[in-house]
Structures are given as structure tokens and as C-alpha cells.
Measured scan of single mutants.
Amino acid sequence: MDETGKELVLALYDYQEKSPREVTMKKGDILTLLNSTNKDWWKVEVKITVNGKTYERQGAVPAAYVKKL
């Protein structure tokens, strides 16, 4: 869990989004888990830093590609 009490997951593999509802992640990324009720796809929040600014993006990733921490 992070400092706000939200559950975290670890990306076990790289994943490139294939639709606007998904998010890209790299192996080793730590993501915030938002919903894991679907056994195949979990909704997560990814933090992306671009030019020193951090953005948050929500989307789905394959459940088999992440592990709860």
C-alpha cells in the first residue's frame, strides 16, 4: 500500500497499450491498483513524468502482467 492506503501492484512485464482504455507500463513499474474485480484486466493508475511534470493516467492492464505488493 502507498501512503494514502491504496493498494500497489508491480509490473512483471512490459505492456504497450492497444486502445485508449489501456495504459502502457514497463517491467518494474509500481502502479496504483484502482479495481481488480475483473479477473483478466485490472484498472490501474500510472504516474508519467514528462519534462519534469508528473501526470496521472488511469487505464486497464492485463492482470497476469502485474502482481499485488
Rank of each mutant, 00 (worst) to 15 (best):
L33K: 00
N35G: 07
G28K: 02
Y15Q: 02
E22K: 03
Y65V: 06
T49R: 08
V9D: 01
W42Q: 00
G59M: 09
K27G: 04
Y55H: 09
N35Q: 10
V61F: 01
L12S: 01
D14P: 04
Q58P: 03
L10W: 07
Q58D: 05
W41E: 02
M1K: 14
K43Y: 15
V23P: 01
W41P: 00
S36T: 09
L10P: 00
G52F: 05
T4A: 12
E45W: 05
N51D: 14
G28M: 02
K53N: 11
V66E: 02
V9C: 13
E22N: 02
W42G: 00
L12T: 01
K67Y: 09
K47Q: 11
T54D: 09
N51P: 03
P62W: 06
T37W: 07
I48S: 06
W42S: 01
G5R: 14
V61N: 01
L31Q: 00
M1F: 13
R57C: 09
S36Y: 07
L8I: 08
N35A: 08
E3P: 13
Y15S: 01
L69I: 14
E22L: 04
A64G: 09
V44C: 03
Y65G: 05
Y65P: 04
T37F: 08
K47V: 12
K26R: 11
Y15G: 02
G5L: 12
L31T: 00
N38L: 07
Q58K: 08
V23Y: 02
N38T: 06
D2C: 15
L69K: 02
E22R: 04
G28E: 01
V50Y: 09
A63W: 03
A63M: 04
D29T: 05
A11F: 03
T37M: 10
Y15L: 01
K53C: 14
K68D: 03
E56A: 15
R57Q: 05
V9I: 07
L33R: 00
K6C: 14
T4Y: 12
V66K: 00
V23E: 03
I48G: 05
G5M: 11
M1S: 12
L69G: 02
P20K: 09
E7C: 15
Y55K: 07
K18C: 13
W41H: 01
L31A: 06
Q16H: 12
D40N: 12
K53G: 08
T24I: 04
Y15R: 00
M25V: 10
T49C: 15
Y65S: 09
K39I: 08
Y55C: 11
W42A: 03
W41S: 00
P20T: 09
T24H: 02
V66Y: 03
Y55V: 12
M25C: 06
Y15K: 00
E45T: 09
D14G: 04
K18T: 11
G5A: 13
S19H: 10
M25K: 00
Y55N: 06
L10D: 02
W42P: 00
Y15I: 00
Q58I: 12
V50R: 09
Q16C: 13
R57P: 01
V61T: 02
V50S: 08
S36P: 06
N38D: 15
K67Q: 12
E3L: 13
T54Y: 08
K26T: 08
L8Q: 10
R21D: 15
T37I: 10
W41R: 01
V46R: 08
D29E: 08
V9G: 12
T32S: 08
Y15E: 02
V50F: 09
A63C: 07
P62H: 04
W42K: 00
W42T: 01
E3C: 15
K6Y: 13
Q16L: 11
G52V: 03
A64W: 08
K39C: 12
D2I: 13
A11W: 04
N51H: 10
T32Q: 08
I48V: 13
M25G: 01
P62L: 05
S36Q: 10
G52N: 08
L10N: 04
E22G: 12
E3V: 13
V61Y: 02
L12D: 00
L69H: 04
L33C: 06
K68R: 12
K68G: 03
K6G: 10
D29M: 12
T32K: 13
T49Q: 10
E17M: 11
V46L: 12
L34V: 12
L8C: 14
Y55L: 10
K26F: 09
K39G: 10
E3A: 13
L10I: 15
K47Y: 10
A11P: 01
V50C: 12
A60I: 15
K67C: 15
P20G: 08
Y55D: 05
I30C: 08
K18I: 05
T4D: 13
R57G: 04
L34A: 01
Y13W: 09
G59R: 01
D14F: 04
T32M: 10
E22Q: 09
G28W: 04
L34P: 01
Y55S: 08
G59N: 00
K39E: 10
K27N: 02
A63V: 05
T24S: 15
